[in-house]
């Protein structure tokens, strides 16, 4: 394959700058020493990171997001792992329809999901509750959990399981001692990707969250609606840092290209 020409490289550089600029500018503004939005031209300051401490609702929202992401991804996997094993290994009537159903939250706009869940949980008397958030998030992260688990289950050497069976393992023992360890990288990556999706979701959650169950994106969004000041940039910078850490871990652990291929045609 031939190398890129100078024109292509110029295009590439501009492209990358545009892709990075908005993220970079948020992180830079977060370090401003001024009391208003500005680039930190007169030295860096952590004052706006310290200011976060004076806004307990941001801190609370962070913990809500964290718990929600961790829990809903875990619950989604409890459902997704058996489903993935079944879809990966059996040919049965309705298999394709089931797979399409399980991936459908990717196709449905999150506004529509938010409205549907709001209506549903309000009639069920669960409006604004943390339980409702968990259930709703289980649905939206399910496709991500399913895909990566499915990829692992499909790629698994079935004769390893047969060997275990021939040695006397069966049922739960077989799953716990052989099947699960073999698909574990896929399961963990599925969890991580699901977590990020849940942690980032605004569109659906903004319909469901009530004061007390507001997630960080919802809190940030509502704050931005009123005014944009350096505080929200420092909070954003923290969120970006957390996501980047998760991203790098995911890359080390599983390979980001594989994870993102699983995210291929996704929704928000």
């Amino acid at each position: 394959m031939r190398r890129n020409g100078p024109l292509a490289l110029i295009f590439h550089v501009i492209f990358v700058i545009i892709m990075v600029a908005p993220i970079l500018v948020v992180c830079l503004v977060a370090f401003t020493p001024e009391g208003y939005l500005s680039l930190p031209t007169n030295g860096f300051s952590l004052r706006w990171f310290r200011t976060i401490a004076n806004y307990p609702e941001f801190i609370h929202a962070f913990w809500v997001s964290l718990g929600l992401g961790a829990l809903s991804s875990f619950v989604a996997l409890m459902f997704a792992v058996p489903a993935a094993l079944s879809i990966a290994r059996y040919r049965f009537r309705g298999r394709d329809a089931l797979a399409a159903l399980f991936l459908s939250p990717l196709m449905i706009p999150h506004v529509v999901l938010g409205i549907a869940f709001l209506r549903f949980f309000t009639s069920a008397g669960l409006g604004g509750s943390f339980a409702a958030l968990i259930i709703a998030h289980v649905i939206i992260v399910f496709p991500f959990a399913l895909r990566l688990t499915l990829a692992a289950a499909t790629g698994m050497d079935l004769s390893v399981e047969m060997a275990a069976v021939s040695l006397g393992a069966g049922g739960w023992t077989l799953f716990r001692r052989v099947t699960l360890p073999l698909i574990l990288p896929g399961v963990i990556s599925g969890w991580a990707l699901a977590f990020i999706q849940s942690f980032d979701d605004l569109t659906m959650t903004v319909f469901l969250a009530a004061p007390g169950t507001e997630t960080l994106p919802v809190r940030m969004f509502l704050y931005i609606q009123d005014n944009i000041d350096p505080l929200v940039t420092s909070v954003s910078a923290c969120v970006i840092a957390i996501t980047m850490t998760a991203l790098i871990l995911l890359d080390r652990f599983y390979g980001l290209d594989r994870v993102l291929a699983g995210k291929g045609d996704t929704g928000r």
Partner: peptide, 13 residues
Amino acid sequence: LGIVFQSYALFPH
């Protein structure tokens, strides 16, 4: 029965 598979099917973990 004891079985040896073509791929060996050892437990990698």
